[in-house]
Computed example of a mutant assay.
Amino acid sequence: MQAILEAESTLTDRYQTTVPENVRRALQLNKRDKVHYTIRSNGEVVLTRAQPSENDDPVLGQFLGFLARDIASHPGHVQAMDTGLVQRLQFLVSGIKVDLDAALSEDDE
């Protein structure tokens, strides 16, 4: 098979590399996207854009990414919850039973 694009990158001391810009554009990769590697028996490695699994929640993923970036940018803003707040939360949810495996009702869908 003839190559339509070739590129090189260098491994760092921690075995990390940057995906070259022309490869990122060809695969339409953005920050935080995942890549998939397929290693063939002849030693070739095929790099593709990873497809999200059906269990991935894109909104939750974006929110968690936002939290991670915010914590990294402002580590001093992270604070432990005080005892009063923990007790208030425990009071508000006491007696509520949750079955995480139960199906949602039509109203909750």
Score class of each variant (00 low, 15 high):
63 F>I: 15
33 D>E: 00
40 R>S: 04
48 T>R: 08
66 F>C: 02
65 G>R: 11
81 M>Q: 09
35 V>M: 03
34 K>H: 15
46 V>Y: 13
51 Q>R: 12
43 G>R: 10
3 A>C: 08
36 H>C: 02
69 R>N: 11
54 E>C: 10
29 L>Y: 04
84 G>W: 10
58 P>N: 07
4 I>C: 01
42 N>G: 00
66 F>S: 01
46 V>N: 11
59 V>K: 15
84 G>T: 13
59 V>S: 09
80 A>R: 12
33 D>C: 01
30 N>M: 07
50 A>T: 04
39 I>K: 14
55 N>R: 09
72 A>L: 04
73 S>I: 01
42 N>V: 08
31 K>R: 15
8 E>W: 02
40 R>W: 09
54 E>I: 04
52 P>W: 14
83 T>R: 11
54 E>F: 11
40 R>F: 10
14 R>P: 00
85 L>A: 12
75 P>M: 06
68 A>G: 04
15 Y>I: 01
65 G>N: 13
84 G>S: 09
39 I>E: 13
18 T>W: 00
31 K>I: 14
35 V>S: 04
81 M>V: 07
59 V>P: 02
34 K>G: 13
45 V>T: 09
14 R>C: 03
39 I>S: 10
29 L>N: 06
46 V>W: 14
39 I>D: 07
68 A>R: 15
78 V>D: 01
16 Q>C: 03
43 G>N: 06
83 T>Y: 09
73 S>H: 12
53 S>I: 07
67 L>P: 06
69 R>G: 03
20 P>W: 03
48 T>P: 03
41 S>K: 15
66 F>P: 01
70 D>G: 05
7 A>C: 01
17 T>P: 01
84 G>K: 06
81 M>W: 14
22 N>C: 05
32 R>W: 08
27 L>E: 00
42 N>L: 12
55 N>E: 11
56 D>P: 02
15 Y>T: 08
64 L>V: 04
41 S>L: 10
21 E>K: 06
63 F>C: 06
54 E>W: 03
39 I>Q: 10
14 R>N: 15
40 R>P: 00
5 L>N: 07
17 T>R: 01
20 P>C: 13
20 P>Q: 15
4 I>T: 09
5 L>M: 08
77 H>D: 09
54 E>A: 15
48 T>H: 04
33 D>M: 06
45 V>R: 06
40 R>T: 08
72 A>E: 11
35 V>G: 06
25 R>P: 07
82 D>G: 15
25 R>A: 08
50 A>D: 02
44 E>F: 00
4 I>Y: 07
20 P>R: 02
55 N>Q: 11
59 V>Q: 14
82 D>W: 09
72 A>F: 00
57 D>G: 07
74 H>V: 10
83 T>M: 10
16 Q>H: 03
55 N>W: 07
74 H>D: 06
54 E>D: 05
85 L>Y: 08
67 L>R: 04
36 H>T: 12
70 D>Y: 07
76 G>N: 02
52 P>S: 05
36 H>G: 04
3 A>M: 04
61 G>T: 14
74 H>I: 03
77 H>K: 14
23 V>D: 05
